Amino acid sequence: MTGSSRTGRGHAPRGGRGAGAASAAVAVLALVAVTAGCKAEPAGSAPPASSSPTDDAKPGAKGSDPATPSASAKPSTPPKPAPKATPTRTPESTPSADPQAEVMMASGAQGKRVRELQARLRQIGHFDRSPTGYYGSVTVAAVQSFQGKRGLSRTGRTDTLTWQKLLGMTHTPTAAELTPPTTRPAAKPDKRCLTGRVICISKNSRSLSWMIDGKVVSSMDVRFGSQYTPTREGTFSVYWKSRHHVSTIYHTAMPYAMFFSGGQAVHYSSDFAARGYNGASHGCVNVRDEGKIASLFDQVRNGDKVVVYQ
């Protein structure tokens, strides 16, 4: 700025001193404007206390008093209070599996241990079907149900804590509990099945029990006719047995057929064995275990009672 004023005076014409002074004043104002306009201010900072671009108004600087600012200076922005500390969440506040528990079985597992798990869960009402030995979605839901009622984390996985709790509430499964004769528990026999020799058939449990004098000799899974060709209910008797029977109406094989009501019979069904409950019969009682129906066929006599009930 000083150099600019000297240059202005050196080139000023005689008698034009006032013009030179005016030029110098303009140069000074321009320099101040440029200097003040190019300085980047931090966001939210207070404006300077004076027009001088070199005055930072630092606390304790000569000519400044932060406690008693001059009338022309705006008070500096008070420091923001320190943020309150956010309490950290302790591990106990978030439900999770116990870090000491080791997973023994989970979805996708299979084998004897899974079958035992299912049998034990069934003993206390958490598994409503026969053990399969496969840890699928039904088993996951059963384990979650057990864990939830015992105050354990509902992971659906069988860890050491879940297993120990289950062992303490159940007994060692018997062979019949591990491999029961029917997929679902056989129904409580109808009172008509409690005397004599009876093929006792429950539609609700989809099971057949061969009973003699109130005792179950064998049980097996069965399926029935569709809504258009329903299996008749009531008390009947076996009137005809045909080991290698073929239907004269539908031209399909009906091995080990035991007729009890018109054309309706108890017999083996290869379709039931292959498709399960995805299909239905034309009114007959289908059995899917060929070995069991063959054994039953050999034991049943003409005249033995057949009871079909809900």
Rank of each mutant, 00 (worst) to 15 (best):
G3H: 06
S5W: 01
G8H: 09
G10K: 09
P13H: 14
G15T: 11
R17T: 07
A19R: 07
A19H: 03
A21P: 00
A21F: 01
A22Y: 04
S23I: 02
A25G: 00
A25K: 02
V32R: 05
A40L: 09
A43T: 06
S50L: 05
S52D: 12
P53Q: 10
D55R: 07
S64V: 14
P66C: 02
A67L: 12
P69Y: 03
K74A: 03
P79S: 11
P79G: 06
K80D: 08
P83R: 00
P87T: 00
T90K: 14
T94E: 07
A97K: 09
A101M: 09
V103Y: 04
M104H: 06
M105D: 06
G108K: 11
A109K: 11
V114H: 01
Q118S: 14
A119D: 09
S130L: 01
V138I: 13
T139L: 04
A141S: 14
A142L: 04
V143P: 01
Q144T: 11
Q147W: 02
R150D: 13
G151W: 05
S153E: 15
R154N: 13
T160K: 11
Q164I: 02
K165W: 00
M169G: 00
P173F: 14
A175F: 06
A176G: 12
R184M: 04
P185E: 08
P189Y: 05
D190G: 05
D190E: 00
R192N: 10
T195C: 01
V198T: 13
C200Q: 02
N204I: 03
S209T: 05
S209D: 04
S209P: 01
G214K: 08
V216P: 01
D221G: 00
V222T: 08
G225Q: 10
T231G: 04
E233M: 11
G234Y: 06
T235K: 09
F236N: 10
V238A: 07
Y239C: 07
S242R: 13
H245N: 15
V246K: 15
Y250D: 15
A253W: 03
P255I: 10
P255L: 13
Y256K: 04
S261W: 13
Q264G: 13
V266S: 03
D271N: 11
F272G: 11
A273H: 10
R275Y: 15
R275G: 03
Y277G: 10
A280R: 07
C284G: 06
C284L: 05
V285S: 08
E290G: 06
E290F: 03
G291P: 02
K292M: 14
I293Q: 08
V300Y: 02
D304I: 03
K305R: 15
V307H: 07
V308A: 07
V308C: 07
Q310F: 03
